[in-house]
Design a protein around this nucleic acid. Sequence first.
DNA 1: TCAAAAGTGTTTCACGTACACCCATGC
DNA 2: GCATGGGTGTACGTGAAACACTTTTGA
Lengths: 225, 225
Amino acid sequence: MKPFHSYQNPSLAVDLVVFGYSHEQLSVLLLNRKEAPFQDQWVLPGAFLQMEERFRDTCSRVLKTKLGMDDVYMEQLYSFDDPGRDPRGRAIAVAYYALVNPARVAVSAGSMANDVAWFNVRELPGLGFDHKEIFDLALQRLRSKITYFPVGFELLDELFTMPELHELYECILDTSIDRRNFRRKIIDSDYIINTGKKREGAQNRHPDLYKFNKKLKKNGFQINV
Amino acid sequence: MKPFHSYQNPSLAVDLVVFGYSHEQLSVLLLNRKEAPFQDQWVLPGAFLQMEERFRDTCSRVLKTKLGMDDVYMEQLYSFDDPGRDPRGRAIAVAYYALVNPARVAVSAGSMANDVAWFNVRELPGLGFDHKEIFDLALQRLRSKITYFPVGFELLDELFTMPELHELYECILDTSIDRRNFRRKIIDSDYIINTGKKREGAQNRHPDLYKFNKKLKKNGFQINV
DNA sequence: TCAAAAGTGTTTCACGTACACCCATGC
DNA sequence: GCATGGGTGTACGTGAAACACTTTTGA
């Protein structure tokens, strides 16, 4: 058995669509490039894969650098292979999307970027490379996933209220959902637990605080748009 | 703007899960390897990506070589990156699955394999590399996809009967489906057209022949397991 | 005319949807 | 006590599931 002959392979990178939710808005993390190509343009964070490194490790490395964050929920999205997608040469991108709570992270541009910032997904600037395409697919996937699997909790604080979860769903799905039917579906799914505590401070009734049920049972749910 | 420095990149290959359906059985196409590693073991067909080649082109090349077939339905599945997945060195695999009609193709082993054959998905041999994992994910994806999107037709002849389509669904989903409710859901979806012809030969009532409606309208469907 | 399988229709029931009411809190 | 928003209950209708009957064909 002979090892691979060292013929040339395409460059291999991961690109990350990092979603954050705060102030009732869904946002994406973007970098402003310091160097060509696409100098001074906004792009998704990413990094080249190092030998012996797994996609997930590369993602974690980027998230740690840009966000100072560990233990982030992420999922592989799709692999992009258009030969013209990077003007520097052939480059394959394996895209992941991640869900974080912006309140818990401190973004920092690092040496490779002029700036790093959260953008509301409804007011995106033009993106370099094929990153608009990647972002569009990620948003589509997130919307689909959230309707049948409990990923929404990743975007909220550990304790959250039902109205907060409801607002999150309406924001991400960009639609209105009957709050009473929504409540029932979520409760019936057994994915969340009522802590008995209440969110204080509001000048009207104090809503119950829930937490995510990590040992998720069989019950699923289905939020219809 | 400088081009990529030529540091070493992992090898990049595509692996294909080719599904076929005939004689009321779902099958997968496997190759028997002529060389190490995994000599004389069964594996999924695949090929290394050539520079300037897209995943889809590599897949087509494999399908053309192994099956003498063009115009095959295929879809990207997932990318696999375990550093230990190939004993010859670091190799990334982008997996695709394809749906073909075995009646229309002539499989040939080619120079790289001892043999090539269809295996019933319920009686798979042990597979080399991480190909069992890839196969499992592909079957899961196919099962999920077929419940809401018209991919089943890719596995049948151009003209097919309702009982044939029904049998296909029961086989792939490995469950029984009420034939009358199934018929209604498919008809209501507008994905198929009654040609007016009938399948001759059977010694009982001759079923209507349908064809796939390529200009698919908005109506979807949902086959529940 | 009989068996086997395909085409068509109907009843039933569960779930999703729409909607109304009561409760808690701060001013 | 009043405005605001959160928690709970219920009637209704649509659509999926369960099921029966008729039709067509070859032997």
